[in-house]
Design a protein around this nucleic acid. Sequence first.
DNA 1: TCATGTGAAAACGTTCACAGCA
DNA 2: TGCTGTGAACGTTTTCACATGA
Lengths: 249, 249
Amino acid sequence: MTSENAERPRRIPEATVVRLPVYQRILSELLRSGSSTVSSEQLAAMARVNAAKVRKDLSLLGSFGTRGTGYDAAFLMAQIDKALGVDRDWPVAIVGIGNLGRALVNSEGFSSRGFRVAALYDIDPAVVGERVGPVTVEHADALAKTARDGEVSIGVIATPAAAAQEVADALVTAGVISLLNFAPRVLAVPADVQLRYVDLSIELQVMSFYQSRRADEVAAGGAVLRAVGLTPNQGADGGSPEASDYRLT
Amino acid sequence: MTSENAERPRRIPEATVVRLPVYQRILSELLRSGSSTVSSEQLAAMARVNAAKVRKDLSLLGSFGTRGTGYDAAFLMAQIDKALGVDRDWPVAIVGIGNLGRALVNSEGFSSRGFRVAALYDIDPAVVGERVGPVTVEHADALAKTARDGEVSIGVIATPAAAAQEVADALVTAGVISLLNFAPRVLAVPADVQLRYVDLSIELQVMSFYQSRRADEVAAGGAVLRAVGLTPNQGADGGSPEASDYRLT
DNA sequence: TCATGTGAAAACGTTCACAGCA
DNA sequence: TGCTGTGAACGTTTTCACATGA
């Protein structure tokens, strides 16, 4: 009962879902750099994953490649957009218009992929009423009304940690069921609300794990010899060419 | 040959590694709210995962719990810090001091977990020399020297997309082997450089997938009835209490 | 000839269920 | 009694290897 049903909607594993936007980014950059077709091997190198994985992922959406040639980049993008549901309208509200909120509003990764900044909220009187990017900042109290009117599909929390839970409550009460939280705070929301965290400190901790593990391996002497001394874009001496081959422009 | 070796360093799966910082955040909030012990069930509810998973994750680091009681929050935090390598010094450099860079420097999730802003870089003459947070912004040309002196362990890229690759090259050439990229650009780096993306557009696309999938289910009539109409902090009517029980203060 | 698409196998991660201990 | 720690069962994801087709 949804508009069209051209292909069977095979079940897409979560692991694939998080990779699809990565392929989108790569495809859009390949297109901008003039390529019109791309092989699973190229995609894999740029995404830093295995080529078979790329093929499996893409084959879940349908058979869009051409044997002996590869994939048509523009066509593939459109298909992934469809699978991700990005071909619909996604009005996004951002709450908290500090440095982070402003960075998000103006970020290139925002509008470039079809997402629409529908509303901005803050409680600071000095900010309310200001025009940031495409819209004017409203007082957070107005949130309930706007969201209830179906004018918001995804809520982005960019407030200080102390306000995050309160904002999440307000968004949920207003009927928003997808929250993206940039505040370093654990949020309590009902089980059927989609909630994702974007958190500098979490990322840094993961990086520190891998870097210190590597340091330990080196210290233990069991490590491979591919130590430091790497030259990214200086002439390759014919060693083992890997990921950085598919460098753009 | 590293300082101490009290427990065997069992191999920690990647999936666990990304959850450990989440537990850390929860623990630090529990501590602040006055709790000193925590059960796997509480941790699980707040992290929105299965309790068995929490126990498995933690048991990989050692046997730190007390049967019948739970885990000592402060002690557990210290153990996880050790496993993640966060107990070392992690000087971080941020390149690109726009709105995003400033938001990162001042972010609560930064210093609160022991990471240290060691250097800030930009190329805008209006910004170079300015003091932001704890340090003064240097010109990006100075990057090579500082980093080579071992003064940077993790590089954070917060520039516009157009400059991201160039900055990544500079960081890698300077010997930085862990990069965190906030720019919406695919980067080519040598295989042994640790590279992670933090990307609004990727997150939004994942959210849109799950929300549109849910919409499809509802439209198809096969969905559960747990539709909208949720009340997060308004009185519970005795239904099925779930995650939002463990709400803090 | 070259690169996709896909069964089948292997690796990995999650969940169950309960023994063991405070 | 209550909650951890963990083998064993289960499910998912990755990888291999090759048949298939442009």
